[in-house]
Amino acid sequence: MDNTTLLQRDTFRYKKNKLPANLALLGLAFNCLYFCLLYGIKVSAFGDGTITWFSNILIGGSVILTLVMLLTNFLASEGIKGYKKNYCIVLLVLAVIQIVRIFIYPLYVFQYEDFNVTYFWIRNGGHIFMGIMMVIWLCASAACLIASAVLGYINCKMLENHMAALEKGEINMDEHFAEAKREMLGGSDDGSSIVSEEV
């Protein structure tokens, strides 16, 4: 392993896993866009046109699922930011749910031409346009979550291996900082600490 790679990995010790965490948050944002569209549809349209106890349960369940998903997504993003490998699995599960969702509401929208939509701009675009938008948001969300999980896992694993190598003494990072230290000390470094006692 060359010095640059080693130093890059060493920075993980002090920096947050930002890119995967931000990707997870982007996935969350796409999810929000999706359910904005979803609740723009009058759910009674999925059936005979009247609001029934079943459609109420459907709405309630969908709201709860979305809230749980948003919360989990956010927690997973924070977890992955702190290099917690297990949250990658959570992100993958969320991605799978998003993919499964493509085959539920968007497909309904494609099937029913005379459904009611409350969004002006969607109404003008027609039901096909709305269905396409829903699929796009879900796909984007799933893609972000998968990317976040994969990148997060790679970084977590790299940090894990780096820490293990440091603990075993296989690598010594001090050698890599010695030159910078010497530069700061004007070429002399007797190796002693300036700290005389614990403050």
Binding site: T4, L7, Q8, D10, T11, R13, Y14, M173, D174, H176, F177, A178, E179, A180, K181, E183, M184, L185, S193, I194, V195
Partner: peptide
């Protein structure tokens, strides 16, 4: 450059005995 920053910060932390406090 990020790696230059890392080198300098780690060197300063070592001089000042702050390596265990960096996080």
């Amino acid at each position: 450059d990020k790696l230059v920053i890392h080198r300098k910060v780690m060197a300063a932390a070592e001089i000042l005995d702050l390596k265990t406090q960096l996080n």
